[in-house]
Structures are given as C-alpha cells and as structure tokens.
Write a protein that binds this DNA or RNA. Sequence first.
RNA 1: UGGGAGGUCGUCUAACGGUAAGACUGCAGACUCUGGAUCUGCGUAUCGGGGUUCGAAUCCCUGCCUCCCAGCCA
Length: 571
Amino acid sequence: MNPSNPTAPAETPTGPSNFIRDIVIEDLKTNKYGGRVHTRFPPEPNGYLHIGHAKSICLNFGLAAEFGGKTNLRFDDTNPSKEETEYVESILTDVRWLGFDWEDRLFYASDYFGQLYAWAVQLIKAGKAYVDDLTADEIRQYRGTLTEPGRESPYRNRSVEENVDLFERMRAGEFPDGSRTLRAKIDMASRNLNMRDPVMYRILHAEHHRTGDAWCIYPMYDFAHGQSDSMERITHSICTLEFEDHRPLYNWYVEQLGIFHPQQIEFDRLNLTYTLLSKRKLLQLVEGGYVRGWDDPRMPTLSGIRRRGYTPEAVRNFCANVGVSKTNGIVELGLLEHYVREDLNKRAPRAMAVLRPLPVVIDNYPEGQVEEMEAVNNPEDAAAGTRAVPFSRVLYIEQEDFREDPPKQYFRLSPGREVRLRYAYFIKCTGVVKNGNGEVTEVHCTYDPATRGGNAPDGRKVKSTIHWVSAAHAVDAETRLYDYLFTKENPGETGGGQDFTSNLNPHSLEILTGCKLEPSLAAATPGDRYQFERLGYFCADPDSAPGKTVFNRTAALRDTWAKIERRGDRR
RNA sequence: UGGGAGGUCGUCUAACGGUAAGACUGCAGACUCUGGAUCUGCGUAUCGGGGUUCGAAUCCCUGCCUCCCAGCCA
C-alpha cells in the first residue's frame, strides 16, 4: 500500500500472497524497474471473458493497485478473421463490472501495426528475417518434429534487397493469402520449436474490426505481443503456463530490436470442476444452441455469472483465494459457490417464495381476514429493517414441506404435527385432500391465534419453521433452477469418438412456472438479488416483463435435510 | 526416445534447512422463528528409492507420474 515501503503487507489483503507477488516485492526492493509496477490484461476479442480471465484480471489489476502501479487493458487483435467489435464491447463491460479501471490506458495491438511493420523491416535489413514462399503445408514439413530438427527453407538466404522488396509487395497486396510469409531467421535445429524460424507476418486479405482494409498482412501474436508490452513499458508481463515456451522468442525479438525488455512470468490457468474454460468450446456451446447464449446463467462467462446473480465481490474474493502457482490443478466448483453464498448471505434481502406450491387452508382462520405480519429483511444486517407480509386463510407452502407419511428426522408438516409459519402462526395439520391419483392437492390446518408472530405464550416448541405465501396476494413467477452444465468433473474427458457435448448435463436447467412470490417481490427489477428463505439466492432475470417475473437461482442454500435424506437412501 | 514446466490433506494454497499451516469440502456437536447463518471440535497430505545433515517438504542423486509445445491461432 505504501510505495515507500513496498515490503509492508497490504492494508487489506484480499488473499494469501503468491510467487508473482513475491517477485514484484523483490523487484521493488532491488529497484529493478525504478520502483515501477506496470501490468496489463491482454485479451483477444474473439469471445467472451470467463471466470478464468477473472483470475488474470484480478491478479494484474490487484498487483498494480497494491503497489501503486498501473494496469493497461490491451486487445491483442492481430487476427482479423476471428475478432469482432461485439467481443471488445463485452470485454470492456465485464472488466468494468468486475470493478477495475484502466483509466486512459485502453490499447489495441492494432494501434501498433505501423511500428510493428517498421520493426519487421528493421529485422529484414539486419538479415534476421526473410520472406518465405513455402506453403503452410511445406512449412510444417520443414519444421521437423519434436525429436527431429527442421530443415532450412530454400528461400532462407534471399538477399536483403529482395526481402525488403517482397515484404513491401506483400503489404501492397500483390500476393494472395497464404502465398508467402515473413519469417524470423533463427535456428531450424532449435529444440524449442518456437525458435525454428517462426512466422512473423502472414497475408490475410480480411477486414479488421478496427483498421478495416488498411492492411492485408497481419503480425502473428508472437511478433506482436512482446513488443506491445515493451512499447507500453510493462514491467511484469503475466501470462499463463502455455506461453513459457514462447518466452525465448519474445526475448529474442526484444533483444534484436534493442527495445525495453519486460519480464514475463507464467502462472497456472484456472480450471474448475464440471466446467469448461476454453473460448473455443464455449463458442461451440453458443453456436450449437446447447445454451441460450454467451450470458446463459449456466455459462462460466462473466456475463453468464453476472446474469446468474453472482456479485463482483464474490468473484474477486474467489480469485483472491484460489491461489496463483505453477501447478496445474482443478479447483472445486464448490469453492466458487462458497464465495457467492458468503457474500449474498450478508447483503441479500430475504423474502418468501414458494416454488412448488401446495395449498393450505387454515380452517379456523376467519374468511376474508388479512393480517400484516412483520418480517425481518435481513438477519445479518439490522439496518435492512422489516417489511409487512400479508397473511390470510388460504396459503401456499412448498410441496417438500409436507409429507403425509414423514420419514424419520423429517420435522416439517405432516398429519397431526404442528409447525411454525415463519413470522406468522403455529399451524397443525388436520387433514388432506387428494386427487384421483392419490396425490395430496390440499392440506387442511388449524392455527393457534395465541402464537401470532411465531411464538407460543405457553413456551411450547415446534421442530420446524416453514415459509409460506398468501394465496390471494401471491405474485406469479417463473424460476429457473440451474445445475452443473456438465456431468463430469472434467468435461473434456470423453469416451471413444465422443466430444465434450456428450458430457452435457441434460438437467442443467429446470424451469418452474406458477411459482408464488410474496407481494413485495413484484417490485423486483432485473439484477435484483434476494434470498428466498430456506431455498437459496435468486436474481431477477432480464427476461422479466411487467406481469411476468423471472428469477434465476444463483445458488441454493446449504440443505442439511437433503443430505440426511440422501444418506438414508444409501442405507 | 526432443524441449519446457510441475508433483504437499478429497480440492486449492502455505511452510524458503528447525513443531507440515490455512481455506473449501467431509464428519460430530452447540445454537437458531431459515434443517440458512454463526460457533466448537475431529479427520486426512510432503510421488517412490537412495544420499547430505544434529535436523529435509525444502539441498543432492535416481526413478515414476502429470501438463504444455510440431497453427500462416492466441
């Protein structure tokens, strides 16, 4: 926090330290970059950001913020065939939503196309790059294999003059896509395949989302990334493990060019159980119609998570606590859920909602009478106050809260048994009405007027408190319950010939209509979050319209009874 | 059978030659007008084999296992 004493722990540590933070602290101590900490988050605008990106965003912005540094947002948009403005918009929105600010430092690799081109010419003139006429297929063959060295291209020793001329003509659009490339002249025998004369530029007559048709040659990521970091004077260039092999190449470019040398540090990408974090596969889910879009609440995208009802605070806490290391592991999805529950428990107002209604008639309650019961808005937050909930003779309770033949340890309503209606009265079940299939369609009860508000003057106890909604006052709603999108911890693991879609969970979405909400919920607007008592956290969906309320279940509450019952089944 | 990076409770992360710690999960209990929350307690780990050392998760040797790399993707 205090730049003059960078080794002092942060005033509000959001999580444990990690090896990258330790490196930054050490660099500050040795004054490696003149006390500067400058990071960047460099997405490619070819898809929506997901929870794995959130880890990187939090790391980069968090580190800079902690040590008084800066973080740039830079789009690595070097491949016009995959990138779109829609994606840059969504990325901007998501980073902002997460709570980070790049201030005036929004950059694009495409801003640097001119400089990159000049540097390419510089390398050609230094005899360090050449125009190659080999086809993609031939380049692959010449590259060799993991265990065998590659062979030099027959075009490798063209004169500087010819290379300059050819490269200029590539840029001028004289050659068709794929006919030539610009390659770095390094070492076809290198044990690191990235150093076997990597392609620097390819010909692509494609419309770029920002530069339009100004260019028909585009730099490869490897030729753009390191220099972009360099131009932005990035001190700590943090990326994921798979780029470790590329570091020697980035170093080579920067050294040949004689420009500022950022320090690249690789960390492990986030993996989550029952979750896919691959933009390619997420795109496939969207395009294949397996989900309703990038922001489907089952998606691990930030837009999906947001629509699901997660808070940025919960995501940040999660990211601060998953740890940053170099081991490839897989974090349990339950940890993410833990952080939403932890956050929402503190801030979500409570309300009563009945998802699967079962009518209850209080036979001894005066017909036509309505009472306003006082309910606490949030037991975790006294300042949230109370509200009035209407009570009347006919109510709805949750089907699960009644059992005609209660199993052991079931404490809820059943014939002859007394329970408390939350914030209202004790009721005792006196009988049921069934339909032709023998299913209970209505429960009859009597109430004890002396227990108004929920306490018995005679001190008698009930073993259970259940939620309810007055039938006459209820607001109808649709709720969408979500389960894991995949049935396998590692959805990428598939049997012979199958792809990951075979691991899709057919029950990942359950839509409930005819749900009954307490009237205060009629005021909910999309994005509003509540805890439906005893059920879970719910968030009003943008699909809501006047008269049609839709809620997403963000996360269920911990359900001890379900656990007991499940265990009972196994015995 | 090349190169790079890794292997610590079920999961993730710490311990930087000196009592293997924390979080999540699990189990047990307390409390409770949410079978929620909260609180208390319990459990399980240094990949294997050698070595150095008074002392090794940590250093050395060796074996095993996992991940990444043969795009004109990023």
